[in-house]
Design a protein around this nucleic acid. Sequence first.
DNA 1: ACAAAAGTGTTTGTGATACACCCATGC
DNA 2: GCATGGGTGTATCACAAACACTTTTGT
Lengths: 242, 242
Amino acid sequence: MDFRKIDNLSVDCVVLRLEENTLKVLLRKRALNLYDENSPVIDDWVLPGHYVLKSNNLGETANRVFKELTGEDHLNKNQFRTYGNAARIKSDKDLLWVRSRGAKVRTITVAYYLIVASNKDLLDMDDSLKWFKLKSLPQLGFDHHQIINDAYEDIKGKIITDPLIFDFMPIKFTLNELQMAFESILDVELDNRNFRKKVSSKSYIVPLEEKQKGVSKKPSRLYMFSKDVYNQVVETDYIINK
Amino acid sequence: MDFRKIDNLSVDCVVLRLEENTLKVLLRKRALNLYDENSPVIDDWVLPGHYVLKSNNLGETANRVFKELTGEDHLNKNQFRTYGNAARIKSDKDLLWVRSRGAKVRTITVAYYLIVASNKDLLDMDDSLKWFKLKSLPQLGFDHHQIINDAYEDIKGKIITDPLIFDFMPIKFTLNELQMAFESILDVELDNRNFRKKVSSKSYIVPLEEKQKGVSKKPSRLYMFSKDVYNQVVETDYIINK
DNA sequence: ACAAAAGTGTTTGTGATACACCCATGC
DNA sequence: GCATGGGTGTATCACAAACACTTTTGT
């Protein structure tokens, strides 16, 4: 195992989740104090990422980023684009930052997105990590604004044909939760009755006997996504139509 | 302009075209003679590609690859995936080849596909370049088999929703040609009458007054794709359904 | 006049859309 | 018993699928 970094190759992760039907991205504080503790030269946010180690694969590096953030493994990741233009790193802050880490100014970043289920408690997040609404991001370093937008566009495209939506959901979920997840990600409104009809026609969304508990209203039925069943019927079956 | 190579970053291009309704890929001969002129140590095929120069962007590098192959500019390219695993280059041949070119064994390859219109004459192709049927590829170096398959899968996915098919077509084409293009890329059969109905409903596929010439049968009407019109109606309009 | 491919219409079925009320539960 | 969200059915419309014959041209 060779722990040296490849000094011009990094992996950045767009970590996403739904919180109260709002898409959020996990960002890491980027702070650099040169002279004075109280007036940092750099004070903004970036995507969590890592330089790739000589013995690590790209996907492994993405997994590792996630594991370091949350202490947990994450299997579902998606490489969606690579950023490596010559002038990608050009602002004074970005140049300063990259040099301060001993890396090349011409750094190639392979970008992944990782989706975290909405019920998952991510413990032990230190103060330098924070979830931001996708629609109101803070000041970001590098081209990370672009990267986040590209990730979002990719997801919006795939969510209609791929079973990506279930990565956002808890293992057991209600149909209304599922509908709201679609609505908030795609920014559309769906008819509840038609949505339920459509979902019932999908063999891979299976109703459980179990019902919600601890709600002060009629408890709703729980469903789960079966990947096994899905794999048998993929060919023909889209989830929702646009 | 800095003409030095970044010694661990390359761009590989999957150059595709339809020839007689068969998908073909452009490959470059990889030959290395060490001792004996007549028994090369390496004698197989690879995707055309280039190490990225210090002053070149990724997309520029893809364009440059194409320009060097054909002498022509090509605007439509698509970055679809990046390959950079630690053990990506591992066969003796590949290691030998990479070292003979003074590059790093851990090379990251950003892969693009480029689509060439079927009527385009690509002149001046030297003997080291050849079109192969996608379905019967020769012995390939590196992981280029994988890369070609990934490109093909990406295209099959996008061709249903994006106007990618027109990159394969001449500017003016007949509806039957268009149908056959879909059929050969997706490997399906379509009903001619239904296909024509569907196409007529697309405002961005516009009939011309002109007809085919020099054919020994009823000459068919020519159509063209209007990107202008397309951009106005994208939101709602898919080309064919699966 | 014949060969070859172009072009055309109708029917049937499935799935999308639109829409309003009763139900089950916790408090 | 009431407030809250859960759950259900029907009618209409648009589009996908299936299918066979006539037309136009060059030779």
